[in-house]
Nucleic acid binder design. Sequence first.
DNA 1: ATTTGTCCTTGATGTTTATCAAGCATTGAT
DNA 2: ATCAATGCTTGATAAACATCAAGGACAAAT
Lengths: 229, 229
Amino acid sequence: MPLDPKFHEIMRQNPLFKDLSDSAFLRVTEHTSHCELKTDEVLFRQQEPATDFFMLLTGKMKLSLLSFEGTEKVVDIINPVNTFAEAIIFRGIPGYPVNAEALSDTTVLRIEAATYIETLENSPKVCFKVMAALSVRIHWLMNELDRLSLHNATYRLITYLLETVPEDIETPTEVHLSVPKHVIASRISVTPETFSRTLKGLSKQGLVTIHNSHLVLNNPAELRKMVSI
Amino acid sequence: MPLDPKFHEIMRQNPLFKDLSDSAFLRVTEHTSHCELKTDEVLFRQQEPATDFFMLLTGKMKLSLLSFEGTEKVVDIINPVNTFAEAIIFRGIPGYPVNAEALSDTTVLRIEAATYIETLENSPKVCFKVMAALSVRIHWLMNELDRLSLHNATYRLITYLLETVPEDIETPTEVHLSVPKHVIASRISVTPETFSRTLKGLSKQGLVTIHNSHLVLNNPAELRKMVSI
DNA sequence: ATTTGTCCTTGATGTTTATCAAGCATTGAT
DNA sequence: ATCAATGCTTGATAAACATCAAGGACAAAT
């Protein structure tokens, strides 16, 4: 079934679709479907055959890895209106490399990879957009590696918090944790207990004020200095 | 100066150049130069303007990040005949994201990014190869992230050792550590001291035998089981 | 109103790994 | 032959973080 045209505009804003010709774009949308997920519902699992990639419209998704002991590591938290799993398109390997699960009720667009690839074959311009997107991803991952291996829990928490506010903010800023704390804990690779204690540590230093999921960064400049961004 | 034709064949074997037309390839080689580095010599530093990417012909290179405290983390060890820093091509950001330093006397080819980009604009087929290469990189990085955040020093050492031997080996196998131990230590994110102790631990269990830089993996199957690959 | 469940916090304890300090082996230079 | 210099190992100690166990806050269900 072809996609409801009301979604066309939002798709077009994404770099992966922006430079497609109208006819190519329509061909893609004909192989795109709309998909609703309830909280905790699984979109796909590690190793499952990967035939589609996705664009998140509303809600939150988490991408996670499962170790063989069964412990889970949240690799990324996806927000609207980003695409995810697009890197699978070009791999020889057929399976998804992560699990994708809804953190809240969500809507996603499911885009057939094969169709999209066909359209790319006729458009070097879009290829460049894709390559740029992949490169951004690579540098994000390198950044993650850096932050995991070079730094401690406090550092990782602060950088996580600062990612959610504009770069130039100097005055006290509210931050609402829109996903459960234990998910953020996994995302920055600490246990929920350590997360709680680390956040409390920042609070004792007067750097943040805590009201449940509602935080105030009292001194963004000082926080930035602590991680020297 | 154009590149000595004796290097053409080896370049052609790399996926980034394999599917270029002859004329396009020649244009690239005209903007490629040959470059010799002594041990410890720096090829480029983090933040330096990135105008070229590279292909390693002989020797070893290390790519590393420097934290603001001055500690170094080896992100990757490059072997012949791989390209590196190719992801910079498509980024908006102008600087290299890592440092590149020779671990031994090396020779590299320096390829002008702008010229290469021009050739891509005319060849969707090569674009696909590049996208595939970038995707492989992404999945390698996700694997790294997994191994750093889900596992301990022993696990990381074992996977490092197993990466150097064929997948199906069951009998005792020699492994020669071709780079200094402290570099490997940084690569798997432990201190040299921990590296030494961890390796000794494996030795005490009879899993490896140590003769300086020369190791024997006595039971690859058991090692593989321990990390359950 | 009580119960149940989820999520978070807190404290006590244990493990892993880093840090500091010293010593040993090898190499190259004087 | 002796003297650094380098890279590795080893031991003692400390820090960071995980684990285990218990309890509190809050919301939904009964």
